[in-house]
């Protein structure tokens, strides 16, 4: 019965909330699984300033990938390039290639709006809209054409449950989203992101403004939803990376003595166990053992 229901819902989702529809050219790896993002030799510029140089990595499906590194190493810049949020910054420019499920993310015909529908983002500081909790969550589905109150109710409940916030707010859905505590507000933003059923969830230091208990809740949440989503998280907290992530990318700052410029580079990328247990690069080792950054 439930399966039938699920099938029905799947059908409906495919019709109303247009799911991803790209030919299956996504590279598959027997050991690693589907490659969601394939970043190749990518450098990102803000005007003439090169924020990140020559980054190459692959993000795999249903995994949590962590970007770590000292301040100014470009990890947030790379994260934001994955859902084309850098487009909003005047003068931002990308060289190299980023492929999403085999499609060139920065191709001529690609709409950033469609990209962001599929690749959601949770920000460092929770930014609930000055609307009710219900309207916060319903915002995404509404702009994608869902008007039916029944469906919206369903989506709101489902998203809040996925974000582990339902029990706390189910009796006050029409109260303002601004009245929540920091941890609750951040879970609201996560629920809001999940409501449009993205493929990927990007998180930019989502717990940096939260206390340890709220942080723990969100980390549990990440583990729970990872079977359904692919997550990339930027974090300053190495312990968090070891707790939640499957793979870790370590970035650092490269200083060019001659021209006195700095740029971010990807130093090492591998499974979390390997990065923290057996780092190959001396810089990685210095960072994860606390000697630098």
């Amino acid at each position: 019965m439930e399966e039938q229901q699920d099938q029905l819902n799947v059908q409906q989702d495919q019709e109303v909330l247009p799911k991803l529809a790209v030919p299956d050219t996504a590279p598959r790896d027997k050991f690693n699984g589907t490659a969601i993002f394939d970043v190749q030799n990518t450098s990102i510029y803000y005007g003439s300033f090169r924020a990140v140089t020559d980054v190459s990595l692959t993000v795999y499906e249903n995994e949590i990938t962590a970007f770590i590194g000292p301040s100014g190493c470009g990890k947030t810049t790379v994260l934001r390039s994955l859902n084309r949020m850098n487009d909003l910054i005047t003068g931002a420019r990308l060289e190299g290639d980023i492929h999403y499920r085999g499609v060139n993310l920065y191709g001529k015909d690609v709409s950033p709006i469609a990209v962001r529908r599929r690749i959601g983002m949770v920000f460092q500081k929770a930014n609930p809209f000055p609307k009710s909790i219900y309207d916060n969550i319903a915002y995404g589905p509404r702009i994608n054409g869902i008007r039916n109150k029944g469906r919206l109710d369903e989506i709101v409940e489902r998203s809040l449950k996925q974000a582990a916030l339902w029990d706390e707010v189910k009796d006050r859905l029409n109260k303002s989203g601004l009245g929540l505590s920091g941890g609750q507000a951040q879970r609201l933003c996560i629920a809001r992101t999940l409501a449009v059923e993205p493929d990927v969830v990007l998180m930019d230091e989502p717990c940096s403004a939260l206390d340890p208990i709220a942080t723990g809740r969100i980390e549990d949440l990440m583990q729970e939803i990872k079977s359904r989503y692919t997550i990339v998280i930027v974090t300053h907290n190495m312990q968090q990376a070891t707790r939640v992530s499957d793979r870790t990318a370590f970035y650092s700052v490269l200083r060019d003595e001659k021209s006195d410029t700095r740029t971010g580079v990807l130093v090492e990328y591998g499974s979390t166990a390997q990065i923290f247990g057996d780092p190959q690069d001396s810089r990685t080792q210095a960072y994860v053992t606390g000697r630098m950054g």
Binding site: N83, M85, L88, I113, A114, V115, R116, R117, R118, G120, M121, F123, K125, N127, P128, F129, P130, Y139, G140, I143, N144, C189, R192, T193, V196
Partner: peptide, 19 residues
Amino acid sequence: SLRQGSYALGASKARVTLT
């Protein structure tokens, strides 16, 4: 931050502004 949140959900600029 409000605009960013709306963009991240896949809204166009006009929608961000109006909604």
